[in-house]
Design a protein around this nucleic acid. Structure first.
Lengths: 211, 211, 211, 211
DNA sequence: TCGTAATCGAGACGGTACGTCGTGTCTTGAG
DNA sequence: CTCAAGACACGACGTACCGTCTCGATTACGA
């Protein structure tokens, strides 16, 4: 997150001496970044200098909070990522998988996010350190959710055992992610989650019609 | 590729006036970029200035060939991508899919490429214009190959009809790409291609044992 | 002079926001130029780039102060020209003329100035805009001083009336300047001022010996 | 002059093998320089590159003839300096001095020369080596002519003895040169030569009226 | 009527400097 | 201690010339 403005152990902000940091500055900076991104400024042209100028804020105030352009972007990314984990019914594994995937799809095109989110992800991808951090936070959490459901599926007999759970996760998420992040042609269509889940579950061999 | 050194219609290089461009310069520059990339220089720090210096080449000589950092990178990327399309047997759709996927896997970790290729891809991803170009060249070609095989599979009855071919392609390539490009944890293990193809073909429902 | 660091009307430096410019930078740059000049670097080879490097200063810091090489040189020139106007006795016109000319001669060979000053003048001469500025500041002041003394001479009867004062000025200063600036053979010898003044005053016709 | 295209001892051009140099190139280049100068291009902006381009000539062809920008300028300067030495009557020293000075004045403002000549002189002044060369050729010749006349004047009793001839020369030429080269305000007015000569001869003391 | 050889135009070559911009740090005075 | 403002050293940007070099083509001469 932002650079730690030192906090005491229990989490309550230590009453530090001097003028407290203005929350308005934080907001102004993040807003300025988003505004530029939406105006199509392109991350190459994004600079702390310009951002501070547009936010009506001193450069020092920015550097006091973030160590550099990437850290700032990471925070912007997280601000877009209101991670309200999806509610799972728990009844049917297939439905839970659809719910997870639908959640992923939604975040890939929701309102403001849309282009911006995908852009920022693409950028953060280019910075190993940040990517790792983002990965560990967001991606790993998602994978854990899938893995859990899939393991339950194996237990209930809804999913064939003997396949690595990690691979299974990629089997479901990979197609969606490839579409969203790698080729960002079009918006991800409604019903995509269901189609993927069902197709992976059933396979693409011709159905054996029971007589 | 490089900036056009205008050619006559028939393809033979038009005898242009003046001293011809030195191929040694092209080589030196591309090598310098690769060297830096291998030293972990990170695309952000890559600069034409530094590259020219390390290549022992004038900046002008670089700008004569490439319009900017991105164009140069694109060329470097392509130089890594000796796209010797995989040979397909054509006998069995399943085997052809494995061959295609294996080819993809190999290029994701072969020799020099390895880290560099993945880094560059991650970086290029952040530059929409370059990404589009790379996508149209490399990614689209790969998708076409998959689509062709899959259509054959539908025709021969090896693949269930009624599923969008584009989606099918993502079902096979997505998991591999997600592993290679999105989470670049480990090397892609041997046998991954086969596992993916078979799992997607068969589905993950428990097998219905015919009596 | 330097680029205006805007001042309030009354002349006291307006308390501008932000970090004030470091006087050390000004000094370092001017010193660096002088050092190079003394090492015989020749004005053609003088470059802002090199100067900034040698002064241990960023290029931007230089451009913040001077609009270009010429402006900088002009400042250097002025720094050599500590115009402590000569003290005039006011008693005898002839002596005042000698004092003025002697002052001019001195500045034409004094210590450090010597070669450097003459070089810089020769250089600045080649830049119309700068020359005009230098001329208006330094040369015009000098001419005014001469004109004043000469007018007094006409009034007191020490100088024949009917000769244009501007021309008279050139009659006295021209020979000295021609020696110093046009042919810079040797140093200007002691006693040159007196010789010139007396010769111009008396003329070069053979003396009419009163009986 | 131009770089020596080696000549045999007797002065006739040695018949060298290979294609002879085209006189048209020499002309085109000098013309191009003059054209630019007249268009007010300013010597700073003059570049061999641009000149060759405007002359429709290869850079190499220029460098084959002149060692650099300054040498070229020197040649241009000389081409302006049609040194038809003035014809001297030889009867009266005063008239000869006027003739010499009038010649100097004329060359300082004649037709095409005018601005261009003075500009080029000012520029050449800034290059010690070239200046020396120009000085030795043009200036020294002029001084010799003055010195000769003045020595004759001393012999005939028209000029007071005991004054250094070199200084005397500067007494006459200095004022004119100062006006032309140092302050190039206005054109040098008609009659200036006579005024200077007479004033220096007679001095500026009030005339002693013999009874 | 041939080479031979220096010329021509064009333009690439490794350099250096240009003047601008962005980096991250530092330094003001004010709050 | 924070704030906006802005100076600081640094280094990259893309362009222009520098003076040298390599091209293919042209133009003279002597063999």
């Amino acid at each position: 997150m932002s650079r730690s403005a030192s906090r005491s152990a229990n989490g309550t902000p230590a009453a530090r001496p001097g003028r407290p940091r203005s929350a308005a500055v934080d907001r102004a900076v993040v807003e300025a970044v988003l505004r530029q991104l939406e105006e199509g400024v392109g991350i190459g042209e994004l600079s702390i200098e310009r951002t501070a100028r547009e936010a009506g804020v001193g450069k020092a105030a920015v550097y006091r909070r973030w160590a550099g352009k990437e850290e700032l972007l990471l925070d912007v990314l997280r601000s877009l990522d209101d991670d309200t984990a999806p509610v799972l019914q728990g009844a049917c594994v297939r439905d839970d998988l659809v719910a997870l995937l639908e959640h992923l799809r939604r975040r890939g095109l929701a309102g403001r996010s849309s282009a911006v989110l995908r852009t920022v992800i693409a950028q953060v991808r280019a910075h190993p350190r940040l990517w790792r951090e983002y990965h560990e936070t967001v991606v790993a959490a998602r994978r854990r959710a899938f893995a859990e459901v899939l393991r339950r599926g194996v237990a209930t007999g809804e999913v064939r055992p003997g396949v690595d759970v990690g691979l299974l996760t990629d089997l479901f998420t990979g197609p969606m992610l490839a579409r969203a992040v790698l080729h960002d042609w079009q918006e991800l269509p409604e019903g995509l989650a269901e189609t993927i889940v069902d197709t992976v579950l059933e396979g693409v061999r011709p159905r054996v019609r029971p007589r």
